[in-house]
């Protein structure tokens, strides 16, 4: 089978949001970067599927030249090859992102055959648009199930479990399909040293798509007014316990 997983490079934000001087992006000079959390589970799932069924896994990202780091990370976990839709690093809106991914999928499928499954994160950690996977599925005319915590391939269809009020909702859709996944789907493995060495030799196809005119256009970012709750210090060490219990009693939880 063939599985594609789409990922986004996002910063590790730490304890505080600090904006770049133009307020159009986060100040990331002192931050590390990662694959957006839901998508890390997508990568792990794609690798497990190919380990179980054999075939080919491919990772795709749309992002700046530095996003090659996240493609290597995915390949270090076992993905076979990568497609890099390289941008200048500016924000692409969800429609433009989806359009470029759709073109890349069509081109890859024309050359190598259809993907049985295309995996996305349910939403990106940073912009959180909740829509790129659904737009890609719509354009390709494939069923899409979102927010998945469990995926089981059963013959020509895929059983999908999504958390819902009081339990899980279950769907079954025929392949080819598009699935959006959430953290908790699996526990991603750590890359091994041989995995990293193999990843360095795996192929990355880089192309520079044209950005469609944004219809949802970022104007500026704003750090919300801080909650500003300067904590009342109840004490230090175990001797603070009576003061804590006094507070618990006061607010009515004991």
């Amino acid at each position: 089978m063939r599985v594609l997983v789409c990922v986004k490079r996002v910063p590790f934000t730490g304890g505080k949001m600090v904006l770049a001087p133009d307020s159009m992006a986060l100040e990331t000079r002192h931050l590390g970067f990662t694959i957006s959390p839901h998508e890390e589970c997508g990568v792990e799932e794609a690798v497990r599927m190919i380990e179980a069924k054999s075939g080919e896994s491919v990772v795709l990202t749309l992002g700046p030249a530095e996003a090659a780091e996240q493609l290597r990370d995915a390949m270090a976990l076992g993905v076979d090859r990568a497609i890099h839709l390289e941008t200048d690093g500016s924000e692409w809106d969800p429609e433009a992102t989806a359009a470029a991914i759709i073109d890349a999928i069509r081109a890859d499928e024309a050359a190598s055959g259809p993907f049985d499954l295309i995996l996305f994160g349910n939403e990106s950690a940073d912009s959180g648009g909740f829509q790129v996977g659904l737009r890609v599925a719509g354009a390709l005319g494939r069923p899409c199930v979102t927010g998945l915590k469990k995926v089981t391939i059963e013959g020509a269809s895929v059983r999908c479990e999504q958390e819902s009020e009081g339990g899980r909702d279950v769907y079954a859709v025929p392949m080819p399909a598009v699935l959006t996944v959430k953290e908790g789907l699996n526990l991603p493995r750590y890359p091994s040293v041989p995995g990293r060495m193999r990843a360095a030799r795996k192929p990355v196809a880089t192309m520079t798509p044209t950005q469609a005119q944004a219809r949802l256009e970022l104007a500026s970012l704003v750090v919300p007014a801080g909650q500003g709750r300067r904590a009342e210090v109840l004490g230090s060490g175990p001797s603070a316990a009576p003061a804590v219990v006094e507070m618990l009693r006061k607010i009515g939880v004991v």
Partner: peptide
Amino acid sequence: MLNSDYAVVGDLKEIVPAISKEI
């Protein structure tokens, strides 16, 4: 600490059992 109402500074491995004991 900037997002909390109350704080206790120290080793949670000592503080948490002490709170349980006090309750």
